[in-house]
Simulated scan of single mutants.
Amino acid sequence: MSRFLFVVPPLAGHVNPAAAVAAELAARGHRVAWAAAPEAVRDAVGADAEVYPCAAPAHVPRPPGLRGAKALRFLWEDYLVPLAEAMTPGTREAVAAFRPDVLVADQQALAGALAAERSGVRWATSATTPAEVGGAVTLPGVESWVRSRLAGLRERFGDPGATHDPRFSPDLVLAYTVAELAEATVPGVRFVGSALHTRRMVPDFPWEWLDRDRVTVLVSLGTVNTDNGGRFLAECAAAVRDRAHRLQAVINDPGGVLDGAADDSVLTLPGVPQLDLLPRVSAVVCHAGHNTVVESLWQGVPLVVAPIRDDQPFVADRVAAAGAAVRVRFGRADRAGLGAALDTVLDGPDHRAAARRLRDRLRAAGGAGAAAGHLEALAARA
């Protein structure tokens, strides 16, 4: 039996794949613990999980409309660096108390990588988006600026003599995707496909609302925290209503921007059981968040993608280049354009065939089982 410590940020899209891998390791007889904000992981890992509490930084509202270099600066200065500062004490305590054979650090939980290198523990990177491992083009000077932020964190919390990039473990980088969606430029990446994790069921989903005689579309922007999110969802609803004779849509609206609007062709809810719903839908409209994209492709479902910021343009470009999605502009998409994009992915065979090819590749990659195997091999070396 080996000991694995998972260090994750308080973000569901980063917790869920790690939880799937941790569950697989536990099923194989290993001991698993977490360094995280307890309230961020309990739903995914269960009340009985061994969790060493870490603090989270004070919430800083993201200014609307941030894009490009300004968005990246906000991500690092107002979130990633403060997150590393807040999580470091709890992560160090977890390492000292749990004594892991391998530490698994989410790529955005830099406290994990830095604590591992300072304590001499072998560690692996958990990369939940292909953008960082897939050669996403950065603006001139941006990468050197990011490296200066990393150097400052290492000087304070890591091993000042280390030379590797703490975003990428020199021993193992787990990427929850396939090469077709990443074009990896980082050596040693192991593509393990989707690591799907059973989530807490959304209560009282009205399954009887689904009309078997019409095609169902799922619309989701994740947690709507952007300007124009309500406008975009409203345009999606209008596009579906224009095709109500053959389409119906379930809209995930956690922010309540559509005020729960519903009729016989559009159902708006604050939460949906996405993994349970995806086998029943024929297309997905989303912001190109990586988890939603690969969960859709896992079912062979084509997409309409409207990236907003961060890694989403990269993910959107890759899935569109693979032939499984139509990309639209988030800020300009209207009912006509969204309707045309839906017609394209629903009526033609090409996008569905591409989605099914990627489904086969994702499933063949091995998922949580493959990731657990790589971590076991790393523990054996440790």
Rank of each mutant, 00 (worst) to 15 (best):
A288L: 04
A288T: 07
A288I: 03
G289I: 05
G289Y: 01
N291V: 02
N291F: 01
T292L: 07
V293P: 08
V293E: 05
V293M: 08
V294N: 10
E295I: 03
E295P: 09
S296F: 05
S296Q: 05
S296H: 08
L297N: 13
L297E: 13
W298K: 06
W298H: 15
V301N: 02
V301Y: 04
P302W: 01
L303V: 02
V304N: 11
V305L: 04
V305I: 08
A306F: 12
P307Y: 11
P307C: 08
P307M: 13
I308S: 10
I308K: 10
R309H: 15
R309D: 14
R309K: 13
D311F: 04
D311Q: 06
D311S: 12
D311W: 04
Q312I: 03
P313V: 05
F314T: 14
V315L: 02
A316N: 07
D317P: 06
R318H: 12
R318G: 10
A320P: 03
A321V: 00
A322S: 09
A322C: 11
G323V: 01
A325P: 06
V326I: 14
V328A: 11
V328T: 15
V328F: 07
F330V: 09
F330A: 10
F330H: 13
G331T: 06
G331Q: 01
R332L: 12
A333E: 09
A333H: 10
D334K: 09
D334T: 06
R335A: 15
R335N: 01
